[in-house]
Nucleic acid binder design. Structure first.
Length: 320
DNA sequence: AAGACGAAAGTGGTTGA
DNA sequence: TCAACAACTTTCGTCTT
């Protein structure tokens, strides 16, 4: 019984001072909606609104089910997840008869305004949805692409270009900015848009939207390439370490980042005793073996690790 | 036979006049 | 608009294991 009392009346220290007795400790009674001085019983506030939930939940699932607030606003739905419509059937009879004509005009106009832009947008966003799930992209990327696509539409940049290519190039751009770039080939495969088209659109859109167009860095490709090849974290760390050194020696400038990344992975795999063939790496990275060889040679030369490499290769052959 | 190597010719894109 | 150019690809022959 005493326990129940305590649950009902919560002792609160507030900034208030009781005008009757000078005490500053109050009891809150959520059932009656009162705030009461703990010493003299003066009622300080009546008819307080209880802002807490009136329901209880015992686990996460219940909490989700009982919460009545909706999904957060999102740019990935063409109307940000909210749909407002004038003139749903039935509504019209709540309007005074003399205003009905005006009401219907309003409904018609809203429909036209919203639909012309949004029809385009909702098509584009479902294409984006497809790409995102195909490529397994994080939510952040999804949101950001959606935001920028809307910007592009507002600026009239989509006119004369297919929205698939615009979406694809925005995905390309945002992935790169977020530090986990996809190759043009991957996006080509996922979207069905020619990679040259994606590249061209990318450059155009980037310039028009004032996005900075810094070249993709080889390091950012490493984690994905190593995991696609089933290589360990050690190889990944080693490859990144190699690239950091390489950057200082200016070996990488002007070269395609994919080729440099591929060579670094190759070297790292050899040094960590998890050697892959050049062909295997070329396959997943999307460059030829020749390019890997060229970058490989340059890296080994400039970093002065040819001895180390040769020793390791001989070691690996002996083990067989 | 498989993998690494490299020479030679071809391709697509950038740059500068 | 055109030619020069660098990076990259394709193709192919050679060498090693």
């Amino acid at each position: 019984m005493a326990k129940k009392k305590k649950e009902e009346k919560v002792e609160m220290k507030t900034g208030f001072v009781c005008p009757e007795c000078g005490c500053h400790i109050f009891l809150e009674d959520p059932v009656r909606g009162e705030r009461v001085c703990a010493r003299c019983g003066l009622v300080l506030e009546e008819e307080m609104v209880d802002l807490s939930q009136e329901w209880r939940a015992f686990d996460e699932e219940q909490k989700m089910r009982r919460a009545r607030t909706g999904a957060p606003l999102t740019a990935t739905k063409h109307d940000k997840g909210l749909t407002t419509e004038i003139g749903k059937t039935g509504e019209i009879f709540k309007v005074a008869p003399e205003k009905r004509a005006q009401y219907q005009r309003l409904a018609k106009w809203q429909k036209r305004l919203v639909e012309s832009k949004d029809r385009n947008l909702s098509f584009a966003l479902s294409e984006l949805q497809r790409l995102v799930s195909y490529l397994g992209l994080p939510r952040q990327v999804h949101e950001e692409v959606a935001r920028r696509y809307e910007k592009a539409v507002d600026k009239g940049l989509v006119r004369g270009r297919s929205m698939e290519s615009v979406i694809a190039s925005l995905v390309y751009a945002v992935c790169r900015e977020m530090g986990s770039p996809r190759t043009l080939e991957e996006i080509e495969k996922a979207s069905g848009v020619d990679k040259r088209e994606i590249g061209r659109t990318y450059r155009y859109i980037a310039r028009q939207l004032g996005m900075k167009i810094l070249p993709a860095s080889a390091e950012d490709y490493i984690p994905r390439f190593t995991s696609m090849l089933g290589l360990s974290d050690k190889v990944q760390a080693r490859a990144i370490q190699i690239l950091k050194k390489a950057k200082k020696c200016m070996v990488t400038s002007g070269k395609g980042p994919k080729g440099v990344a591929a060579a670094a992975v190759y070297i790292a795999a050899v040094l960590e005793g998890e050697k892959k063939t050049q062909r295997e790496i070329a396959e997943v990275v999307g460059v030829t073996e020749v390019t890997i060889r060229n970058r490989f040679k340059e890296l080994v030369e400039k970093l002065g690790i040819s001895d180390e490499i040769e020793r390791k290769i001989r070691e690996l052959e002996e083990r067989r």
